[in-house]
């Protein structure tokens, strides 16, 4: 556990730093600790914010001292390390995507750039679940790990001013979804009819950091059908489970 340090982030924050690397297993440990803290010490912390390789814990220093909180966290770290056999299962959220045409105007570019057919790009993009390392940038925006380098593509030279919510894109060897309409320079390959961020709903966020996303290809008719169900509030996203640090 010597590679883990607990750092200061103002008088109300501390950061548990697991090292300086982007790695599925390291990120898995971040999410395990986040769950452990949220489940076991809800009265001691205000918020936990998992990121790639660290966890920020926000607390009220007038209720609990940094030293006491740090000692408790170290205990959880030691316990997790000792057991090592936690049935560590993550949720996989299925994201239907209509690829190409007006939904993904850059799909052809991504295919040509990688000397692949459009069909191959879709097959590769939907071939495995992606680990949600963290959410940030805009509400609900997932930083995903595990996309194949075979469909990597550079960002647009000139970012678009407005990208529709639900757009699925590629930037370098990353893939992601735009939860709200925003400017951006990612190559757009498709769009999901699901609402990634729905502030009025009882479940405002479609997925959380630590989940996995599995993209599935749908046609334009299915896109419209699901879109109607989403608008009517009758659509339930498909989910399954996966052993964390598994196939991705």
């Amino acid at each position: 556990m010597s590679d883990i340090s607990i750092l200061k982030a103002g008088e109300k924050g501390l950061v548990i730093d697991f090292g300086n690397l982007i790695d599925p297993a390291v990120n898995g440990r971040v999410h395990r600790l986040a769950h452990s803290i949220a489940a076991n010490m809800p009265g001691d912390v205000i918020e936990v914010i998992p990121t790639y390789r660290s966890l920020m814990v926000y607390f009220d220093p007038q209720q609990i001292s940094r030293e006491t909180l740090s000692a408790k966290i170290r205990q959880y770290l030691d316990n997790t390390a000792e057991s090592g056999t936690t049935d560590d299962v993550a949720t996989v959220v299925s994201i239907p995507v209509c690829y190409g045409a007006e939904f993904g105007p850059d799909l052809e570019f991504v295919a040509n750039h990688n000397r692949l057919s459009i069909r191959e790009v879709i097959a590769i993009h939907t071939s495995q679940p992606y680990q949600v390392y963290m959410l940030g940038f805009t509400p609900g925006f997932p930083y995903l790990g595990g996309m194949s380098e075979r469909i990597a593509a550079p960002r647009l030279a000139q970012p678009r001013v407005a990208i529709p919510a639900g757009s699925v894109g590629i930037a370098g060897s990353q893939t992601g979804i735009y939860p709200i309409e925003s400017p951006g320079g990612w190559q757009l390959i498709g769009r999901t009819p699901l609402k990634v961020f729905d502030p009025g709903s009882s479940t405002p966020f479609l997925f959380a950091a630590g989940n996995y996303l599995q993209f599935t290809a749908i046609d334009a008719d299915t896109f419209r059908f699901i879109h109607q169900q989403v608008e009517a509030g009758s659509y339930t996203p498909l989910t399954s489970t996966i052993a964390r640090g598994g196939t991705a």
Partner: peptide
């Protein structure tokens, strides 16, 4: 408060 883990 409470939604920073979701990027809010």
């Amino acid at each position: 408060i409470g939604y920073r883990a979701y990027g809010m």
